[in-house]
Computed example of a mutant assay.
Amino acid sequence: MNMKMNLSDPDTFARLERQAFHGTVDVSGMPPAAYKYFSELAAVYRAYRFEGLPKEEAVRHKDKLLKDYHASVQESRRIREMYAAYQDAIRRAGTLTSEIEKSHSVDEIADKACMVIALLIGDSSFYARQCRKLKEAQSCGV
Rank of each mutant, 00 (worst) to 15 (best):
Phe13Glu: 11
Leu16Ser: 04
Arg18His: 06
Arg18Asn: 12
Thr24Asn: 02
Thr24Ala: 04
Met30Pro: 09
Pro32Glu: 06
Ala33Tyr: 00
Tyr35Ile: 08
Lys36Val: 09
Glu40Ala: 11
Glu40Val: 06
Ala42Leu: 03
Ala42Asn: 08
Ala43Thr: 09
Arg46Gly: 01
Ala47His: 05
Ala47Thr: 05
Phe50Arg: 01
Pro54Lys: 00
Lys55Pro: 10
Lys55His: 06
Glu56Asp: 13
His61Asp: 10
Lys62Thr: 01
Lys64Met: 11
Lys64Asp: 14
Lys64Trp: 08
Leu65Asn: 10
Leu65Ser: 04
Lys67Ser: 15
Lys67Gly: 10
Tyr69Asp: 12
Glu75Cys: 06
Arg78Lys: 04
Ile79Leu: 14
Ile79Ser: 07
Met82Tyr: 10
Tyr83Cys: 00
Ala84Leu: 03
Tyr86Asn: 07
Gly94Arg: 03
Thr95Cys: 00
Leu96Ser: 02
Leu96Met: 12
Ile100Phe: 07
Glu101Arg: 14
Ser105Cys: 08
Val106Phe: 12
Asp107Lys: 02
Ile109Gly: 00
Ala113Leu: 01
Cys114Thr: 12
Met115Tyr: 05
Leu119Ile: 07
Leu120Val: 12
Asp123Leu: 11
Phe126Cys: 08
Gln130Lys: 13
Lys133Tyr: 13
Lys133Gly: 08
Lys133Pro: 01
Lys135Glu: 09
Ala137Val: 04
Cys140Tyr: 14
